[in-house]
Design a binder for these strands. Structure first.
Lengths: 196, 196
DNA sequence: CCTCACTTTCAAAGATTTTTGAAACAACTA
DNA sequence: TAGTTGTTTCAAAAATCTTTGAAAGTGAGG
């Protein structure tokens, strides 16, 4: 209650002055688009919307502001923020004289996509690769009964190997993008652009 | 009923001889892994499983074989096959003297991922880009009231532009991979590998 | 134009995922 | 320590997505 920026209810022209009608509309649209996109990518719509809101608003918001803006429950807001924080897409912030916790979204789009890539790789690709290797082991020791040509098993193994090899390649590409100086994709883009 | 390959029930050693215990197990595992992976990527588990089965078995199967192997209903099998066919991941095949329709999965992994990329781009990225451009237009004609510096709107537009620019870049990268001679990603990999 | 052998469709059922809201929890202040 | 303010948790409710199965559709032969 000591900060001038958080004045009572809406109505009167507080800091973010009048002409912000279009701004509001623009923000709302962005939130919807991002939410839609997220849910087609397997990310809960609300979580994506919270992220979108924090990104597009640009400055930290607290839980109540998020709840009001997106018309969601406290529990939902809290869970979404927790996930976003776990992912590293959102960080906590505090304002002097305000006990509420504020949340700020990462503003560098490259970093945002690096984080998403890192997490998806870790949670989705890596476990799949491990499972595929186990799967490969099932028909692996084929030398054991190679006196019986067993063509079916061999071609099965070939198909499996092709798939594993491909996914490992994607995996290491993702590594390149995610880790070193973080310039991996930018570099690739440049090179690819030149080469084609 | 005229082909020797589609003999009555299971049991007796038909063409794919005995020692196929491990083969079966390997196929089943692959199907589960792929189904799991698909569903974390927003693709219905069953659809992914049908695709996995056809890929890993390598030769065309008919609807009944798929139903039996995956223990799914006729409707589900039909719908999954339709989607896979729409995507271009599966093609129809026929066997002489058999009126049943057989389905074969694309066997080239690069082609598989090119198809997936093409479809996801078309169905998910392109509409998002269009919507984002519309969204940008909402706060677009900012010259109109530039006598009022309106910093909020300007920084909003900057954030939006950064995001749009990034997604357009991803979009054109996807194009490179998908379209020309289809060697786009392979090329990128080579260059990236050399450069890092 | 009827039948047979399949395939596709789609409303309802079932499964899964997401959201809610109220209670438990935590961290300050007086 | 009690009182406040704010955050997290989680079981149940709601929403969403997937599968089923029976009926409608298709088309090749006869």
């Amino acid at each position: 209650m000591t900060t001038p920026s958080s004045t009572g209810k809406r109505s009167s022209r507080s800091r973010p002055a009048r002409a912000s009608k279009a701004l509001r509309e623009g923000q709302n649209r962005f939130v919807s688009i991002w939410g839609e996109m997220g849910s087609s990518w397997g990310i809960p719509r609300t979580m994506a919307e919270v992220h979108a809101l924090l990104y597009i608003v640009g400055e930290p918001l607290n839980t109540d502001q998020i709840m009001e803006r997106l018309a969601i429950s406290r529990g939902s807001a809290s869970m979404s923020l927790k996930s976003l924080h776990d992912w590293g897409l959102v960080s906590r912030a505090h304002k002097r004289g305000d006990r509420k916790e504020y949340f700020r979204a990462e503003q560098d789009v490259w970093q945002v996509f690096r984080i998403i890539t890192r997490e998806r790789k870790r949670r989705e690709i890596d476990p799949v690769l491990m499972a595929l290797h186990d799967c490969r082991d099932v028909t692996g020791p084929r030398a054991a009964e190679l006196d019986n040509p067993e063509t079916d098993v061999e071609s099965h193994n070939e198909r499996l190997d092709r798939m594993i090899e491909f996914i490992e390649l994607i995996d290491s590409l993702a590594d390149q993008f995610v880790s070193p100086a973080g310039k991996g994709l930018q570099l690739a883009v440049g090179l690819l652009g030149k080469a084609v």
